[in-house]
């Protein structure tokens, strides 16, 4: 009886140890990971926290070294104060028009071009594709000087189109969509031809509905890029009624040289919040979009 007992012990002991240890080890490791990651995440979040907190403080609280981290009284009045300095309503409309204009124009151009590259044969295809990719390497931010000269010659300075036209074609979008188009089975296109579709019919009825996730992903990336764009609008605009939100914010920072941080941060919250709110609501969509932008 005792020997039997001893035997089972000897047998089971190493097994339980082996089975449990990796789990315990993993749990321990994961615990340590949190110990590292929580402060790191807080560090990453701190600028945002600072924006929010500062936007609700009084000016003296900002500069007073004795004042605490949180405001004594929440200064909601900073918000209307900030918004009354400049016509943020107009800026918002301009931002929507510019971003929307670029988005629609790009969706049209990249769809047509990506279809040609994905499904048609024509001389010079590879060369042309390389030329499209060239734009990824040398975006407007690299050629802004001579582009400015061109836009100026076209008489577009201080107009909304000035902020749209340089971005109408997108090498990156064409590339992304071409990859997706190539995933669509060719038999579907054949079936559509028998069903009476020409190239444009196939594109509209078969390809576009099937690559919707890619279109959404590209759309989100484009919106984030151009909603936040600063350099190009800064160069081509010097007129109140065509300014976009980031330009308005930059201007506010400049004019408030006395550094009224409370108003500036309130304005920042206003400018930043539309995208951040969308991000919070459609988190999965955003994350998926940026994730898959990298996968080909």
């Amino acid at each position: 009886m005792t020997t039997l007992h001893g035997q089972t012990d000897a047998k089971t002991l190493p097994f339980t140890q082996e089975a449990r240890q990796p789990f315990r080890l993993a749990a321990l490791k994961r615990g340590w990971l949190h110990v590292v990651m929580v402060p790191l995440a807080l560090l990453w979040l701190s600028p945002l926290v600072w924006i929010l907190v500062t936007s609700l403080k009084t000016r003296t609280e900002v500069f007073d070294p004795a004042a605490g981290f949180l405001p004594q009284v929440l200064q909601w009045a900073n918000y209307p104060g900030a918004l009354s300095v400049a016509p943020f309503g107009i800026y918002l409309v301009n931002s929507v028009l510019v971003t929307g204009g670029i988005l629609i124009a790009q969706l049209v151009t990249i769809t047509l071009a990506a279809y040609a590259f994905a499904r048609q044969t024509f001389p010079g295809k590879n060369l042309l594709f390389t030329l499209f990719l060239l734009q990824i390497m040398f975006p407007i931010y690299a050629t802004f000087l001579t582009n400015f000269v061109t836009v100026r010659e076209l008489g577009l300075l201080n107009s909304l189109p000035a902020m749209i036209v340089p971005f109408v074609a997108s090498g990156y979008g064409t590339f992304m969509l071409r990859q997706s188009f190539r995933q669509v089975p060719t038999e579907l296109a054949d079936a559509a031809r028998l069903d009476g579709c020409g190239h444009l019919g196939i594109l509209w009825h078969v390809y576009l509905p099937l690559v919707k996730p890619t279109l959404i992903a590209f759309g989100i990336i484009t919106v984030v890029t151009h909603w936040n764009d600063y350099m190009w609008p800064l160069l081509v605009n010097n007129s109140e009624n065509v300014r976009t939100l980031p330009i308005g914010l930059g201007l506010l920072a400049k004019s408030d040289s006395g550094a009224d941080w409370t108003r500036l941060m309130a304005a920042t919250v206003v400018v930043v919040s539309p995208l951040l709110l969308l991000f919070v609501i459609f988190q999965r969509r955003f994350v998926d979009s940026f994730m898959h932008a990298g996968l080909k």
Binding site: A41, P47, L48, N228, Y230, L249, A253, V272, L275
Partner: peptide
């Protein structure tokens, strides 16, 4: 927490 800065305009 790590991704949100991408959403913030460079000027802000």
């Amino acid at each position: 927490a790590f991704f949100y800065p991408v959403m913030i305009p460079s000027v802000a």
